[in-house]
Design a protein around this nucleic acid. Structure first.
Lengths: 231, 231
DNA sequence: CGCGGCTTTGATGTTCATCAAGTAAAGTGG
DNA sequence: CCACTTTACTTGATGAACATCAAAGCCGCG
């Protein structure tokens, strides 16, 4: 694991506005002393399901997947997300141990702050508490809505949905490199990887997408939209 | 809608310990002035998807389902829950409008407090904020975990899972009256109502459950457990 | 260049939704 | 309280959707 401790720059961190907006300068400086910035390369595990939660973590840069593993080694991907939409692990205020794992899908940077210190800040500054509460609620809401949206759809609709998710929410571009394997898509939308591939092939055949290895180009976003809506 | 405004008794309300534990006596009395206690009879809608959120609501007594409706009139049941596990509607701090509806499955009592007042309390008392945050996180966690648990299972496993959920979490009894229709179970676990019924019939045939109209008796909880695990 | 993992495609079988038709139950109006 | 209507439940038959299996191709990496 590639751990780097950086000099304090929290005052100017772009993340500050997101949750730490209401903290005064002194709290921010204090926060910096407790802060560790760590880099994870693609594929590395950031949080392990079952391990004790000791830190409040947030994604500063990169892309991660949230997932859990069942007894027989199967994975369920809960969501895939970018910085600022993702604050720490969900169960941070409700559980002692991580209920889900987090892994880097691209090289990522994570900031860690001792959890006890964050709790102290929370009791000291209720604006911060309300802010964080809103943030956590929004993430949870998003995950629940996404899960329901996926559950509603059939196979083709699910694949269309996830492609639209990547193009709109994750990459903000019609062309992107798939950050996950076909298997991971399957684990995300609850179907077999063979059928994910088959569906992608059909989309390719119908001129809806173009595929160059890991690179995907959305050729006909309207048609994809229709499939996502109908499915 | 059967609305009753009751005299103030918040000081001694059993719910107080759950989220309002850290409030001082004065805040509690103030809370009481803002509070409305409403009764809903079985089947009534407590919150309507899409309506503005103006109140912080919590279930004091009864049983409710959380659900959303799709364009073509189909319902997805998100969870079914009892008091104290359920604080208000999920999106209360993250959205302007309800994202999900809530309906009473049994006659229920709901306390409403003006949301702005609760937000004022939150900024005045950070212990309350942390407490509430923990509570909301836990509910969200539970919903996400439950959804994943259901998604993992096949048809029989899902029905077994939901029966175990009723017997353990909701009724705490081996015998109970089903609070929902077969259709609602289907909408909860994502399958057709015909197959829910078929699976229940199979369980009955195999001596796993006994059915007397709406009343269900779990005859062989171990076998049900095995089906739930394996499925 | 050769090995192992990811991907692709086709063939096959299982699981599940859908349809239909009938029965029971529960509400409704006289 | 009974006849009527409607809604929920039940069961079987059918077909569609999807998982699984297997074999082959591709690609990156030592």
């Amino acid at each position: 694991m590639d751990k780097k401790i950086k000099p304090c720059d929290c005052e100017n961190c772009e993340f500050r506005e997101v949750v730490f907006a209401t903290l005064d300068e002194e709290s921010i400086r204090e926060l910096c002393n407790f802060k560790e910035e760590k880099s994870y390369s693609k594929g590395e595990i950031i949080n392990h399901e079952g391990e004790a939660i000791t830190d409040f973590k947030y994604l500063k840069r990169g892309l991660v997947k949230l997932f859990r593993s069942s007894a027989n080694g199967e994975e369920q991907v809960i969501t895939i997300t970018r910085p600022f939409e993702f604050v720490s692990n969900l169960s941070i205020f409700s559980e002692e141990k991580y209920k889900y794992s987090v892994a880097a899908l691209e090289d990522s940077i994570v900031c860690s702050v001792n959890l006890e210190f964050v709790k102290k800040l929370l009791t000291r500054n209720s604006g911060f508490a309300v802010n964080l509460m809103t943030r956590i609620s929004r993430i949870n809401d998003k995950i629940i809505t996404q899960t329901l949206d996926i559950r509603q759809r059939n196979l083709a609709g699910r694949v269309a949905f996830v492609l639209l998710y990547f193009t709109r929410e994750i990459f903000n571009s019609r062309v992107f490199d798939l950050p996950v394997s076909r298997k991971e898509i399957a684990d995300f939308i609850g179907m077999s990887s063979a059928n994910v591939i088959r569906t992608l092939s059909n989309f390719k055949r119908d001129g809806i997408i173009r595929v160059y290895g890991k690179t995907i180009e959305i050729a006909d976003i309207d048609k994809l939209e229709i499939i996502s809506k109908r499915g």
